[in-house]
């Protein structure tokens, strides 16, 4: 199937000023490639600091100003330029961020989910998506600081599905949740994929990735080390990179001693 999102040879580097005025380029991602197909969950697994969030920000064209990106990002068959990204953001492409700090602390949840729209249609849809994730209409009137960790995560997912997106980028959406709550969140991703959306699930948690993803891309040193299916990974077949093999070895069930 034609991938909804394909990333080829993506590199992201930062311009940094060291001592004095010497300018140094610090590369975070170098030559990363992956593809997300509609109806599938692709998990991107990498250590903290491997540049996983930068991948999400590069796709959405919201990298910090001192970052430089190169490579090709294609969405729906055509190049995803800054102009296109600006149109697609929040409509066809949705980001699910890490936690409650991504909500404006001074604004009620309902208004944030609706992005300030107050039409009866938007209000109805807002209540609908809240209900879909088991949140009552009273949630609209809460401020972010009044949400529990699990509620905040569900509100962030509700933000993403307000506009029935075709591509969902979830950037570490589970830290701080217990296994049960994390499982529920992943269930929501699975459900979105089954409805036809492509899901890019960025995480450092290999076990979670294996449990939910159709395919797993392992990042190492800013590059794609391997892309395999969970069953391949478990079996240890098709792993070409030493890092991926070591990662598999390190799992509790694979005699990591």
């Amino acid at each position: 199937m034609e991938p909804i999102l394909s990333v080829e040879d993506l590199s992201v580097s930062f311009a940094r000023y060291d001592r004095g005025l010497s300018r140094r380029s610090l590369s975070a991602l170098r030559g990363l490639s992956l593809a997300v197909e509609p109806g599938q969950v692709l998990a991107v697994v990498g250590e903290s600091g491997a540049g996983k969030s930068l991948l999400a920000h590069a796709i959405l064209h919201i990298l910090p100003r001192n970052a430089q990106a190169s490579g090709t990002i294609r969405y729906g068959g055509a190049s995803l330029t800054r102009e296109r990204a600006e149109v697609l953001r929040g409509r066809e492409v949705a980001l699910i961020p890490q936690g409650v700090t991504f909500l404006d602390p001074m604004m009620k949840v309902g208004s944030q989910i609706r992005r300030g729209e107050n039409s009866p249609d938007a209000r109805a849809r807002c209540r609908q998506v809240l209900e879909r994730y088991g949140l009552g209409p009273e949630t609209e009137e809460l401020y972010p600081f009044q949400l529990s960790g699990g509620m905040a995560r569900r509100v962030l997912i509700a933000c993403a599905v307000m506009e029935s997106p075709r591509l969902i980028i979830a950037d570490e959406p589970t830290p701080g949740l217990d296994a049960k709550a994390a499982g529920r969140v992943l269930g929501h991703f699975r459900e979105l994929a089954e409805q036809g959306a492509g899901v890019l699930f960025i995480t450092h948690d290999l076990t979670l990735a294996l449990s939910v993803a159709d395919r797993i891309t392992v990042l190492y040193d800013g590059q794609t080390a391997d892309t395999v299916s969970p069953s391949q990974f478990r079996a240890g077949t098709g792993l070409t990179h030493p890092y991926t093999r070591a990662l598999r070895q390190a799992m509790p069930e694979n005699d990591f001693l």
Partner: peptide, 26 residues
């Protein structure tokens, strides 16, 4: 802040008025 990043990721317009002004008011 994270919430401005998220607002941009959601394609929000009037970020200055909606989020910045509100948080700078205090």
């Amino acid at each position: 802040s994270d919430y401005i990043l998220f607002a941009r990721a959601r394609g929000e317009r009037h970020i200055l008025r909606r989020h910045v002004l509100r948080n700078v008011a205090l």
